[in-house]
Design a protein around this nucleic acid. Structure first.
Length: 223
DNA sequence: TTGTGTTTTACGACCTCC
DNA sequence: GGAGGTCGTAAAACACAA
């Protein structure tokens, strides 16, 4: 450990005991060999932090990073309760050798980080949920497409059968006009005889003839 | 070594609550 | 009105690639 490091070590120790003095005077983070990069800081209302000594007391000061132990204790306290009552703040400040204002600021920043983390987690959760919904929508779109194809096929089949029935009907009507003239009592539809019932019905029965449209009774609404 | 991005400490402005 | 909160931001500290 060279002289510079010894000085830094001592200053760090002093800083734990007298944080406000340290804040204004320690040249750099303990253990670091990099020179500090002082920048003009806007003036603080906090006398203890900003205006104590430090480069001739001209309003310059350097920020001090809290030690691992201090952060650990603060984290523990934050874990217990995110809000900081005055009494607890003073007690923590005393225990950690910090200015109560530093403890308050640390809690403010910690709450902000906690909130950001929570927002990030919530964003991730919603993003995953959204992705799942998109996948489900794709699946449903594909199912709709498939069902539409099935419907289209069914309609084409209906059309084909309707045309076939129409063809058979027109042929039958031509034949029947001839047969009716020849035989008034027994109308004749092509190869199919039609019984004329007492109620005068007959042609309509054609479509219910089992051997003619067996299995296509469901088509009647389309005719 | 230096430039740059990130994290941490600190503050000012503003708001709410008692 | 004062204490303590959030929010936005400055600046120091730090990490790291080039």
């Amino acid at each position: 450990m060279n002289n510079q490091n010894v000085d830094d070590h001592n200053l760090l120790f002093i800083s734990q005991m007298y944080p406000s003095v340290y804040t204004a005077s320690i040249p750099q983070q303990a253990g670091g060999s990099k020179p500090a990069r002082p920048r003009r800081r806007r003036k603080s209302k906090s006398v203890a932090v900003a205006e104590v000594g430090g480069e001739g007391g001209n309003g310059w000061f350097r920020k001090r990073k809290l030690s691992d132990e201090q952060v650990r204790m603060l984290e523990m306290s934050f874990g217990d309760e995110h809000k900081l009552e005055s009494e607890r703040k003073d007690r923590l400040a005393k225990e950690l050798g910090l200015d109560p204002r530093q403890v308050a600021v640390w809690f403010q920043n910690r709450r902000a980080r906690w909130k950001n983390k929570r927002l990030e987690d919530e964003y991730t959760r919603l993003k995953n949920a959204h992705e799942n919904v998109v996948v489900e929508k794709c699946r449903l779109d594909s199912e709709v497409l498939h069902l539409k194809e099935q419907l289209h096929d069914a309609e084409r089949e209906i059309q084909r059968l309707a045309l076939r029935v129409e063809g058979v009907l027109s042929n039958s009507l031509i034949s029947s006009s001839v047969s009716v003239e020849a035989n008034q009592t027994t109308p004749f539809f092509g190869d199919y005889e039609v019984e004329v019932g007492d109620d005068g019905g007959g042609y309509e029965n054609l479509f219910y003839s089992p051997e003619y449209i067996d299995g296509f009774e469901w088509m009647s609404p389309f005719m």
